[in-house]
Nucleic acid binder design. Structure first.
Lengths: 199, 199
DNA sequence: CCAATTAGTTACCATTTGGTCACTAATATA
DNA sequence: TATATTAGTGACCAAATGGTAACTAATTGG
């Protein structure tokens, strides 16, 4: 909660930590979606007044984009970390999938998928951001799968870029289904089945 | 556009067709989502006044539920029809998948998945409805896959209920991804790959 | 033809929405 | 210490929100 920003050389200093506020905002957008979240909600979760929010982040839409980028960064770092612990690429793939599944909570899903569904068709900025996050993840998955295939953990006749797309689509489906149709256990089983079918 | 309802025995007759209005409403909810759709939008797309909408369907939420049920019915009938044309269960599965994919348009996705993501965690009625629609589809898929397996079109060691869940999750992913991350062609390819991997 | 009933229309309503602005408070530099 | 600069506060705003009610217009059954 201590302001961790660089101190602006002049003027009154911030009384809140920008990252802490962003994290709070991100969680509300994650749980409620963009339209269903009001400025009042954002003030409540950060403890800030409208004026402060606007001064620090701009309007609701800009604030949402910052929260979305923050989510994508944190999430990606977490998954990469989870996928870097083993010497076996396949084990790393499974760890990444499990991490992504865990991040979705009981019914929170994934902020990127939530936003893709709610906003992408009508919001070019959100769509562009999500495309770039998605491509980053698709590349990382393809690399990981390629490595697993090279060391014989995945059948040689399977094409990494196809498997990566398959996995991404199934993960997107997980994020949707966990919001009310399947339990986390069922989702996790299905994801395991998919990866196991590659060996 | 001609009123097709049963004539109420007494009172002034409807000047609009309930199903036509419902179809229009459904399309707006489908494209814009629940929160982003205003009563003004619903009046505009139906040509009706608020009062008439309230009298005929109740409030926004009840109207949405009617539209959602209407969507589920129409969509299911369409898919079942598409999956009943061939003698080969596998061909029927592929036809069903193609139909579902086509229904999603360029970036409209699926109203059920849209609603699952936007509303299910906070709206028990929507969640319950979607669960029942989903289970209906899961049963149908399992049956279809079981039939294909019995006649040797799908490998015997694969379990129909697992494949059905796999397919459902991938279809959910399709509906999300098509909203801005993947093209319909990429989605269709990925779905084909999945089903082909079962033979 | 009259009463009951249902539908369409309009004006209206309180609340909430995202957003702004004038004012005060705190800090760094000169 | 004065000034410039930035931050926090609370009042304020127009517009849009979902929803209602009073009134008029068609119908059917008695």
């Amino acid at each position: 909660m201590t302001p961790a920003q660089v101190q602006r050389s002049v003027g009154r200093p911030r009384e809140f930590d920008e990252d802490t506020a962003l994290e709070a905002v991100m969680n509300v957008f994650w749980r409620k979606g963009y339209e269903a979240t009001s400025l009042a909600d954002l003030c409540a979760c950060t403890g800030l007044h409208k004026g402060s929010l606007y001064r620090a982040f701009g309007d609701k839409h800009q604030l949402f984009l910052r929260a979305l980028r923050h989510y994508a960064e944190v999430e990606f770092r977490g998954v990469v970390a989870a996928a870097s612990r083993s010497d076996s690429p396949l084990a790393n793939i499974k760890a990444a999938v499990r991490k992504i599944c865990d991040d979705a909570g009981q019914d929170k899903g994934c902020l990127m998928i939530n936003s893709l569904v709610e906003l992408a068709p009508h919001d070019p900025e959100v769509k562009t951001a999500l495309k770039s996050f998605g491509e980053q993840r698709l590349r990382a998955m393809t690399d990981l799968i390629g490595a697993a295939r090279r060391c014989g953990e995945i059948r040689a006749e399977l094409e990494p870029h196809k498997l990566a797309r398959q996995l991404m689509m199934t993960l997107a489906g997980s994020a949707a289904m966990i919001k009310g149709f399947l339990s986390r256990k069922e989702v996790a089983e299905t994801l395991d089945d998919l990866v196991d079918s590659w060996t």
